[in-house]
Simulated scan of single mutants.
Amino acid sequence: MLFLFVDGLGLGEALEDLFPLLLSLNPHPLDATLGVEGLPQSGTGQTALLTGVNAARLLGHHQGPFPSPRLRPLLKASLYAWAKEEGLALLHANAYRPEYLEKATRGRRLFLSAFAQSARLAGLPLLPLDHPLALPPGFWEDPYGVGAKAAALTRRFDLVVLEYWALDLLAHRDPERLPERFRELTLFLRGFLEEGGELLLTSDHGNAEEPWHPRHTLNPVPLVYTGEAPPPPLDLTGVLPWMQRILTSKYKKSDRNT
């Protein structure tokens, strides 16, 4: 399975033109506000996705872009830690520049996403750009080919996680260029799905679906899964236990140990 996390993707009318492939996959809406006032943010939203805990309510506010040190104990018990304990073959596929990692991990406050922090806390490596298993997190020269490579990785690993942050970046800094990134993501997904990959896609908050402004939104975020699954959750906190049920049914320990 590929868990494709798309930062800053909500459900909105503009997706009919910008990202029709997503709508063809019948996305289920997830509440990203988590009952906390204000615009959802990446730090608390991603933490809720990965841990099943309402991180925004815990802090009393939405917080981003990176999880604060108060959230780090939650991230020690994330999807990554659970999957590793279950014996799943697990890959955090994002590629990183060494100079970025050195700067991001220099102080007490880690300038790493919840996904990167969770992977690191679970003992997984953060791969360099030239690693054969690594996938750049966007701005691909050949997005279809990168999607096909992601599908090939899912045949080697039980769970591959890729964090795609290009939509959120452009939505904040240069919304007029968002159609380029939606085309890129569409080609990636075509390359992945045409190679027979099993996809789980979701997000942490809305943003790019309203390209006429550079702010986050209150819109629900999509949840897509192309395999058989139990009834979907209602909000971000339900994604982890829902994924655990899927993965447990797909990969029994007895099967993985043979």
Rank of each mutant, 00 (worst) to 15 (best):
W212G: 13
G145I: 10
A134C: 02
N207M: 12
F192Y: 13
P232H: 02
P211T: 02
D168Q: 05
G191I: 08
H172N: 09
R181C: 14
E194W: 04
A152C: 05
H205A: 00
H205G: 02
E184S: 15
H213M: 10
E141V: 11
E184N: 14
V161E: 00
G138T: 07
A151Q: 10
D130F: 08
A152W: 07
V221G: 04
P136I: 04
V161P: 00
Y225K: 03
L153I: 03
L169T: 12
D142H: 15
E163V: 01
E141G: 08
P214W: 08
D158R: 14
V161W: 02
D158Y: 08
T154G: 05
A148N: 06
G147I: 04
P211V: 02
E198Y: 02
D168F: 03
L178H: 00
L199S: 03
D130Y: 09
D174G: 01
E163Y: 04
Y144I: 09
D142E: 15
V146K: 01
F192H: 07
V224W: 09
L236A: 01
T226A: 08
L178C: 08
N219P: 12
P232D: 04
L169P: 01
P214M: 05
E198L: 13
L234T: 09
T217S: 10
T217F: 13
L153P: 07
F139C: 07
E176G: 02
G196T: 09
P222H: 07
T217E: 02
Y164H: 02
T154N: 07
E198K: 03
R183L: 15
T217Y: 13
H213I: 03
A229V: 05
P214E: 04
P211C: 04
R173M: 04
P136F: 07
H131N: 13
L201N: 02
D235L: 12
L234F: 10
A166D: 14
G138H: 00
F182T: 13
A148S: 11
R155T: 13
R173F: 05
W212C: 12
L178S: 10
L234G: 14
R156H: 11
A171Q: 08
R177D: 01
D158N: 15
L189W: 04
E176Q: 09
P232I: 05
P230W: 14
L133Q: 11
R173C: 06
G147A: 10
A134T: 00
L200N: 07
P175M: 06
T154V: 06
E184A: 11
H172L: 08
E141Q: 12
H216V: 13
P220V: 07
G227V: 00
T202G: 04
V146S: 07
E176S: 12
T154C: 12
A229K: 12
W140H: 10
W212M: 10
